[in-house]
Nucleic acid binder design. Structure first.
Length: 551
RNA sequence: GCGCUUGUAGCUCAACGGAUAGAGCAUCUGACUACGGAUCAGAAGGUUGGGGGUUCGAGUCCCUCCAAGCGCACCA
């Protein structure tokens, strides 16, 4: 019996109580929260439904709880129901009913933990989108890890997710990048506002391999040559880093294409038709204040050049026209000023802000050295790239470390500490638990413990109850993390599962001690062991972290 | 000045408005002639930045003050 089963039973009982006149007529709850109490004295599962609905349906919470508890106690598999405090309903299951879950999990396999909350929804998730003027640094790496994990979580709820990278290959930053390459190829100092660093020299020399005469071309031609070839090379490097990191983008969208295709003009015309465009001082403006922005925005500057937002307009429209119900942008905190104007833009197109367009703002990553914050600077050579991080700790540890914290909080990364003491990364605790489930399973099979028998009433140890309780929560955790756009909830949950598993392992043997016979309890525990294996593997999968069989 | 985010154990961080605020690391004490000790058991560690409010109940919601990060362009 799962918490979802209990919730369903409660809803059925409430309808029945109301039909028989025991409860006041009227609206009934559509959903019931059933959660694991922190304190095990409060039973296996608890609900606060009486505090939320008791006054309305029965005059007071205790009265309501008592009525409900009496009926709930008659449900098969329910051993005991208590009413506590202001109206908590505490439910204790029989060992057999609680243990049944182990078999359900094993039979569900990879599907355990998935849901259908987002079934049929077409989502576009844009993340990273770092400019191709340098390698992806540690900040962008955080979005790569979190964004990809989020996509996996949405997919587990039935959504169709397109992972998209907005490739900014238009505008002044690219010009600076090109001029920096030209300078490097001529052994000149980098331009004042340009980029420097070993990677610039490398790219420049690679361009020279392709175009041996590029450095000696006239400036205009040289810049154009280095721009085209340099961006391609940088882009290829970024793409490779991401793939090595386990993040696969379905679409790399080139900003430049919006200008070449006329999409920008089209978007502006659409807004003009809708009456949200005006001209002033020779520039073309979007009247975004109509939709809550704190000022109107220039779309086409008075010199005729497009402002940055012009691309955003066209890009958003393009996403919607490609059939996405939701366009989600993940941006760093240094871009949070965009939110208001982007939402205004969304509304100007007649869409619903927060629904069709959603913007997730994540706080930045701080680089820390010897306890002191270090500002990442390309000139100072203190930039830590995705590749640096992976080289030091590996993909699994890197992704886990970047994903296990809420994106709302700043993250400190100390490379020296990570490289010295990798054990303090909880990913190993979780992975070890998974490896242990596999070793236990292998040992069991080789020693004659098979899964031919399953008697859940034998799963009576306190650590078994605790483990089963944790395992039962995967579906809810996954669904909740999708709603909250918070992959870190899955990571934290896995740490709890791993702890529960290790404690169980310490108390309950799957294989009997030598010379002892194999009994029903061992075969049944093998199911529980394998259920833990499934939960850990399914959770690690959505985090993009491997579930090793041995470490 | 205005806005977004944050403030929880020595450190890094958790906690659908729920019951005694939890993990890991670090510290201390224990446990293998046991399916892998990358483990487990225990101890210690807190006025959830301060102050008000909302309610059966607040780390969580509202107001205010303090502190930190990041933003407030016809830059991208």
């Amino acid at each position: 019996m799962t918490p979802a089963d209990i919730a369903a039973s409660i809803l059925r009982i409430l309808a029945s109580l109301q039909a028989s006149g025991s409860l006041v007529a009227g609206e009934l709850p559509a959903d019931v929260t059933v959660e694991r109490p922190k304190n095990r004295d409060h039973g296996d599962w608890a609900t606060n439904i009486a505090m939320q609905w008791g006054v309305k349906l029965a005059g007071n919470p205790r009265e309501f709880a008592t009525l409900l508890a009496a009926e709930l106690g008659k449900e098969p598999g329910v051993e005991k129901v208590d009413v506590a405090g202001p109206g908590f309903i505490n439910i204790t299951l029989s060992a057999a009913a609680a243990g049944e879950l182990a078999k359900q999990i094993v039979l569900a396999g990879n599907a355990f933990g998935t849901g259908s909350d987002l079934l049929g929804l077409k989502m576009n998730l844009e993340f990273v989108s770092a400019n191709p003027t340098g390698p992806i640094h540690i900040g962008g790496t955080r979005w790569a890890a979190v964004g990809d994990s989020l996509a996996r979580i949405f997919e587990a709820q039935g959504a169709t997710v397109t992972r998209e990278y907005y490739f900014n290959d238009h505008g002044a930053q690219i010009d600076r990048f090109a001029r920096s390459l030209v300078a490097a190829s001529r052994n000149e100092a980098a331009p004042e506002d340009g980029y420097a660093g070993e990677y610039i020299n490398q790219i420049a020399s690679e361009v020279l391999v392709q175009h041996p005469d590029a450095a000696t071309l006239p400036d205009e031609e040289a810049i154009e040559t280095f721009r085209a070839a340099g961006v391609d090379l940088m882009f290829a490097e970024i793409r490779k880093s991401l793939e090595d990191f386990g993040v696969h983008f379905d679409v790399f969208f080139h900003e430049n294409s919006l200008y070449e295709s006329g999409a920008v003009q089209k978007a502006i015309e659409r807004l003009r038709t809708l009456g949200h465009i005006y001209e002033l001082d020779g520039a073309i403006w979007l009247r975004s204040t109509t939709f809550g922005d704190d000022r109107d925005r220039v779309v086409i500057k008075s010199d005729g050049e497009a402002a940055y937002i012009a691309g955003d307009l066209a890009y958003y429209l393009d996403k919607r026209e490609r059939g996405f119900d939701r366009a989600i942008y993940m941006l760093g905190a240094d871009h949070h000023g965009y939110v208001q104007r982007m939402m205004a833009m969304c509304a100007a197109f007649g869409d619903e802000p927060g629904v069709n367009l959603e913007i997730l703002i994540g706080q930045l990553v701080n680089l820390v050295k010897d306890g002191e914050p270090v500002r990442m600077s390309k000139r100072a050579g203190t930039v830590v790239t995705m590749e640096d991080l992976v080289e030091v700790v590996g993909v699994d540890a890197a992704r886990y470390a970047l994903t296990r914290s809420s994106i709302n909080s700043m993250l400190d990364i100390d490379l020296d500490q990570l490289s010295k003491k990798t054990n303090d990364n909880p990913v190993f605790y979780v992975q070890y638990a998974h490896a242990r489930t596999k070793q236990v399973s292998n040992n069991a099979v080789s020693l004659g413990v098979d899964d031919s028998e399953f008697d859940p009433a034998l799963l009576t140890h306190a650590s078994e109850s605790e483990l089963l309780g944790k395992l039962a929560q995967l579906p809810k955790v996954m669904a909740h993390s999708a709603v909250e756009r918070a992959p870190h909830l899955v990571a934290r949950y896995l740490e709890e599962v791993a702890g529960a598993y290790h404690r169980w392992y310490d108390n309950c043997r799957v294989t009997p001690l030598s010379e002892q016979p194999v009994e029903s309890v061992h075969r049944t525990r093998l199911w529980l062991n394998n259920a833990a294996s499934v939960v850990l593997a399914n959770g690690l999968r959505v985090l993009g972290v491997s579930a090793p069989e041995r470490m």
